[in-house]
Structures are given as C-alpha cells and as structure tokens.
C-alpha cells in the first residue's frame, strides 16, 4: 500500500528545503560567473571566481571590513557571555525579593525598540567623543558597547541556571573556593551548551548587525561586512559576480560557527525551553 501521508511529508519537506537552500546555491554558483551570465540566469558554475575575488579585493576594503567585523563580533561575544552569565547566575543563585524586582525591570528593556534608542545613543557617543575620542563616534568600540549585554541573554542564562545542580555550589564552598571561584571554576565549565548557544546567537547578531554601525560608523576603513555589502548592492552599475563573492565571504564565518556548534545549540535551546 502506498503511504500517502509519508509521501506528502517528504514532498513538503523537500520543497521547503529547496526554497531554503536555493538562494545559497545561487550565490555560490554566481560567485564563479561573469556579471552578464548571472543576469542571463545561468545555473552552471563558471570560471570567473578568481577574477571576481581579485576585483573585490582590489577595489573595495574587504580586508579591513573582515577584520572589523571579526573584532566586533569576537569582543562583543566574549564580553556578553561573561557579563550575562554572571548576571544570570547572580539572579538565580542569590535570589532575593529585591533582585527579582530588578530582574523584572531589566526584562522590560526587551520591549524597547532600537529605533527609539539610536538617536540618543548617537548623541551620547557624540558627547563621549569630546572626552574619549577612542571610544566615541566612528570607532569599533562604539559599535560594541551597546551590545555587551541585553536582557535577553541575562534571561537566557537565568533560565539555564535553573538546571545547574546547586549542590555543586555547596561542595565548592566546603572546598574553600570563593564565590567567584565557584562561578568560574565550577559553574562556567558545566554550562558549555548554554555558553555555546548564547555564543552563537551573540556572534551572529554582532556579525550581522547593520542599523547601529550604519548610524555610528562614518569612515570607509571602519566599515563592517554588512555595510560593505549594502554599499555594493546599492550601486547603479552592479558587478553581480563581485557582489555575490562578497556575500559568500561575509556569510562563511557565521555558517562555520553554526556548523561547528550546532549540536550544542539545539541542546542549549532545549534547556531554555524546558525552564
């Protein structure tokens, strides 16, 4: 007997997988083609990859954009993991009425849209520029600072800390570890899945961030990858081969981060859903 239900399942999932993958396949094929062939809709890989790469690196600041994006994403992610884990741990392990009120207030910040913050933040960093130009307008630090932690990550770590065995804390205290020692030597190593999941989300958010760098970055040498791609894409005489090459290069880091940490990601997510 033909199992219509399972045929239906495979057909639906195959169509969904095709639609999801097609833009990726298209950009990978197109990075090897000449602009004319791409316009013609060629689905065959060409031999223009090397030329697209050399045109891209010769005519645009890709090297510095890659460096800037890596710098921002790595520093912001490391700071985010430490600061948010400390807070999530603090709220859960040293629970008190006062802290619960503070936690609820922090959660409200998740409802604040970035569009409302960008003008005051722009002016804030303008003022900082007068005193500390090194972290003011048009610097990579100005891109990083507002994303060091958000209420989402504090919430995420608190939820996952609920599954952390509290007996380990007592054991650490008996062994004479300080409270911070317990946090760094017992808690952090046992939260690998949570750290990986939060790390992926933070890295991707920072790597892909567009609006805030668009507002705060002015000079071409401080451009990030999304700013570069956006500029390439808004040109009037686009060289499609070069643009798709830039997009592929800009997507490789987040794709790699995801593939290497994917296992932890699903487990870390499961933890936060259970809580």
């Amino acid at each position: 007997m033909i199992n219509w239900k399972s045929i239906f399942t495979y057909v639906i999932l195959s169509v969904a997988a095709f639609v999801s993958l097609f833009p990726f396949i298209w950009m990978l094929i197109s990075m090897t083609n000449k602009s004319v062939d791409i316009t013609r809709g060629s689905l065959m890989p060409g031999s223009n990859l090397f030329e697209n790469l050399s045109n891209l690196f010769a005519n645009y600041n890709v090297g510095s954009a890659l460096f800037n994006s890596f710098f921002i994403a790595i520093i912001a992610t490391v700071l985010c993991l430490i600061v948010s884990a400390l807070a999530g741990y603090g709220f859960e392990v040293y629970q008190s009425k006062g802290k619960d009120i503070v936690f609820t207030i922090l959660l409200l910040s998740m409802m604040i849209p970035f569009a409302a913050l960008m003008i005051p933040l722009f002016r804030f960093f303008g003022n900082i520029s007068q005193v500390f130009p090194a972290i003011g307008v048009d610097t990579l630090y100005a891109v990083i600072l507002p994303y060091v932690t958000t209420a989402f990550f504090v919430f995420f770590f608190r939820q996952n800390t609920k599954m952390f065995t509290k007996d380990l804390i007592e054991a650490g205290r008996i062994d004479g570890l300080s409270e911070l020692g317990i946090f760094f030597r017992i808690y952090m190593p046992s939260m690998k899945n949570t750290l990986a999941a939060a790390g992926i989300i933070s890295f991707m958010n920072n790597w892909n961030n567009y609006l805030w760098p668009l507002v705060i970055i002015q000079s071409p040498e401080n451009q990030t990858i999304p700013l570069l791609i956006s500029n390439l894409g808004s040109g009037y005489t686009p060289d499609y081969g070069v643009i798709y090459t830039a997009i592929v290069i800009g997507t490789i880091p987040t794709a790699l981060v995801f593939f290497f940490l994917q296992r932890f990601f699903v487990e870390g997510m499961t933890g936060s859903v259970k809580g």
Partner: peptide, 16 residues
C-alpha cells in the same frame, strides 16, 4: 536546510 537561512545576514539575503 530549513534552518540555514537564519545564518545569513539580513543585509546579505536582502541584496540576494
């Protein structure tokens, strides 16, 4: 495959 679109930046997929 279905999750993969979530790894590409908003700007990059918009241009595509």
């Amino acid at each position: 495959a279905i999750f993969l679109p979530a790894v590409i930046s908003l700007v990059a997929y918009s241009v595509i």
